[in-house]
């Protein structure tokens, strides 16, 4: 049981972070507002969870200007994709044993 739980990634324990990663692995890129609409999160909440995923090197961002307004686009890194895949596999293993 303990080894099974070890497979789970702490970074994805939170619903918002799990949601961010789910969206970023199936899209090449998403901007802040698209993520916000998708997950129904507040600006502050979303920003803090994105920051935490950045610190784990699971997502990176790029800043540019869209119609003269600053726009932040997020990408999942290879490390993040791999971690997400492992996390899902761990959940599936866990569900088989439970």
């Amino acid at each position: 049981m303990k080894e099974l739980l070890d497979g789970l990634d702490r970074a994805f324990e939170n619903k918002t972070r799990l949601g961010i990663m789910s969206a970023l692995v199936v899209n090449d890129r998403l901007d802040f507002n698209a993520l916000k609409e998708l997950l129904g999160a507040t600006d502050g909440n979303l920003a803090s969870h994105l920051k935490s995923l950045e610190r784990s090197d699971y997502v990176v961002y790029e800043k540019d200007f869209l119609d003269r307004k600053p726009n932040t686009t997020y990408y999942a890194t290879d490390l993040g994709r791999e971690a997400f895949k492992k996390h899902i596999q761990a959940i599936e293993q866990l569900l088989k044993k439970l």
């Binding site: 619903k15 799990l18 949601g19 789910s22 969206a23 692995v25 199936v26 899209n27 998403l30 698209a34 998708l38 997950l39 899902i88 959940i91 599936e92 866990l94 569900l95 439970l98």
Partner: peptide, 20 residues
């Protein structure tokens, strides 16, 4: 606990569908 992970998987699928 089982319910939480089943819900997680269903959330992941929902978000993947809705975002694409």
């Amino acid at each position: 606990m089982k319910e939480k992970y089943i819900e997680d998987l269903s959330d992941i699928k929902k978000i993947m569908d809705r975002s694409t």
